[in-house]
């Protein structure tokens, strides 16, 4: 037999190879499990540290008061109501801008645009997705802010609206991508059935294709909300960070993320103030987790339907 010519005996060589194989499998499995550990670690760390704060502060005060003054020597206050309102205001306004625009772009790219146009717009959108948030924040300071101040005759442009416009720009790429995928996933037969009944392309798009892509498109929106809620640098740089409950989009606001970014660097380790920042983090984490899970559920539902 030919294999008698091998150098070392086949049995020991094979043993070594099997050992190697098993070791490698163990290694990659351990690496994959790290992701589970990290997510669990983030979760427990935020909850654990946040929990310490609730020894000193009532849940009611934390969520429903809007008085935030944790650094005060006498009578510190830990109400994040104002920040939650600010965060939601900026996020919702951003979505009001980005969602229709994103759907319009997705519909245009998948149903109307020539391949050439699509080949031009798609990379541009991908490029937009890659712009660091600090650069977007800078654009908010030097372009959007002054523009808003001039247009609406404001003392300065550091308002909720500025943040909302920037977040809309940042959320746009993911909304367009997910929504376009959803529209493309609608079976061709739906459209053909509609054309066969004498509908034109526009009616088909509005009455058949978009409703059929419905939960996929909504998933895109919810995902966008999740991203916008957690965005830090942009709002930190563009919304002025005033600690008041905003009356309108033209007020300055301070979001939950901005509070963490501003105060984490200066807070003494282990104080109630320190833990309260983790409590904000835990709240934010749970919020974005809920948005992500909702988006995932909707996307899964959409995949089942199509």
């Amino acid at each position: 037999m030919l294999n008698n010519a091998s150098h070392s005996s086949p049995a020991t060589t094979n043993q070594r190879r099997h050992l190697q194989d098993r070791a490698f499998k163990l290694l990659v499995k351990a690496a994959a499990l790290l992701s589970v550990l990290v997510l669990a670690g983030i979760f427990f760390l935020l909850i654990w540290n946040g929990f310490y704060m609730f020894k000193e502060v009532s849940i009611w005060e934390f969520f429903f008061s809007s008085e935030w003054n944790p650094g005060a020597l006498k009578n510190p206050q830990y109400g994040i109501g104002g920040m939650v309102v600010g965060t939601m205001l900026v996020t919702i306004a951003a979505m009001v801008l980005a969602f229709p625009l994103g759907i319009a772009l997705a519909a245009y790219l998948s149903e109307v645009a020539s391949p050439l146009m699509r080949g031009f717009v798609r990379p541009l959108i991908e490029l937009l997705a890659g712009i660091p948030s600090v650069v977007v924040g800078f654009i908010g300071i030097v372009v959007v802010g002054p523009f808003l101040a001039q247009t609406f005759n404001l003392p300065n442009g550091f308002t909720a609206l500025n943040g909302a416009i920037l977040l809309a720009i940042m959320a746009l790429p993911s909304i367009v991508t997910v929504a376009e995928d959803a529209i493309r996933a609608v079976p061709r037969s739906y459209r053909e059935a509609s054309y066969a009944l004498g509908s034109n392309k526009w009616t088909t798009l509005i009455r058949v294709t978009l409703p059929a892509a419905g939960s996929g498109i909504i998933a895109a929106g919810v995902l966008g909300v999740g991203r916008a809620v957690g965005e830090t640098m942009t709002v930190l740089m563009a919304t002025g960070n005033a600690l008041e409950v905003p009356d309108s989009l033209f007020d300055s606001v301070r979001t939950m993320t901005a509070t963490m970014a501003i105060e984490m660097g200066e807070v003494p380790f282990g104080t109630t103030h320190y833990y309260s920042l983790f409590a904000i983090g835990a709240t934010l984490f749970i919020m974005s987790l809920l948005f992500n899970l909702t988006a995932e559920y909707l996307a899964a539902k959409f995949r089942r339907l199509s």
Binding site: A5, H7, S8, T13
Partner: peptide, 14 residues
Amino acid sequence: KVNKMGDKNLIRAR
């Protein structure tokens, strides 16, 4: 090669 069946020359011949 994966079964380590011989050196370079032997592999070439096979």
